[in-house]
């Protein structure tokens, strides 16, 4: 018999007899209905407590803000998506402004340009599928247009979050967006920059992923 069948058989013919599944009441996860402003405050406080940076901005002002942020960091290159409106807006903007870094478009399979991505990209910008106030988390569903490594490999990750898409809790977000109906190949909660405390409990950032996480909140 295969190990699979042997394991399943042992589990099915339990000597202790059938088990009964208890009820699961998730109401302990419920939180009061916070307003968008309250959620945003909470989100900001929580993500900043773990070294994330939040900039509140607007539909018309975010590119200026981004340019400023990247300039102070001396970023030379910024990775953008091909189709997403964020990438498009940036591309249009570069046509008549000088203060943005060079834009690189993630439009080829990684296998052909892995080395460049690892060595020559200073920042990556992605959209989000919303945020979670309670834990200060960003929801990312990488896609064909915004592949997984965009938010992982460059030392700076910039995420654009619409304040109107903030949820109170993870449970809330998952239920509202009906995740159980179908998951992408990869989904993520990102709550701050990469970090470790493996050396004597001392925090250090950017151990494998981005050293900085910058959230542009569109209010």
């Amino acid at each position: 018999m295969s190990s699979r069948d042997a394991i399943l058989q042992r589990l099915r013919h339990r000597t202790g007899g059938e088990l009964t599944a208890p009820e699961c009441d998730f109401s302990v996860l419920n939180r009061p209905d916070w307003s968008t402003a309250e959620k945003l405050d909470m989100f900001e406080r929580t993500i900043e407590s773990v070294h994330g940076e939040v900039h509140r901005t607007t539909e018309s002002g975010w590119i200026d803000r981004l340019a400023e942020i990247l300039q102070t960091r001396g970023a030379q290159t910024l990775l953008i998506a091909k189709e997403h409106e964020i990438g498009k807006a940036l591309k249009n903007a570069t046509e008549n402004r000088e203060d943005l870094p060079q834009l690189l478009v993630y439009d080829e399979a990684i296998d052909s340009w892995q080395e460049t991505l690892f060595n020559d990209v200073d920042a990556g910008i992605t959209s989000t599928r919303g945020g979670i106030a309670e834990t200060g988390s960003l929801i990312l569903w990488p896609s064909v247009d915004e592949p997984r490594l965009m938010s992982l490999v460059p030392p700076i990750h910039i995420a654009v979050l619409k304040a109107s898409e903030l949820y109170t809790t993870f449970h809330d977000a998952m239920q509202s967006q009906n995740w159980a109906a179908g998951m992408p190949t990869n989904a993520l909660l990102v709550s701050g920059p990469s970090k470790t405390a493996d050396i004597e409990q001392t925090l250090a950032y950017g151990v494998h992923g981005p050293k900085e996480l910058i959230v542009l909140v569109i209010e």
Partner: peptide
């Protein structure tokens, strides 16, 4: 570790699809 959440919560449901660029 007394964290509200870890930096990454990574949910993997499959390999790279034909049109995806990484994974």
């Amino acid at each position: 570790t007394g964290q509200h959440i870890t930096t990454y919560f990574n949910m993997i449901s499959g390999p790279r699809k034909a049109d995806e660029l990484d994974g």
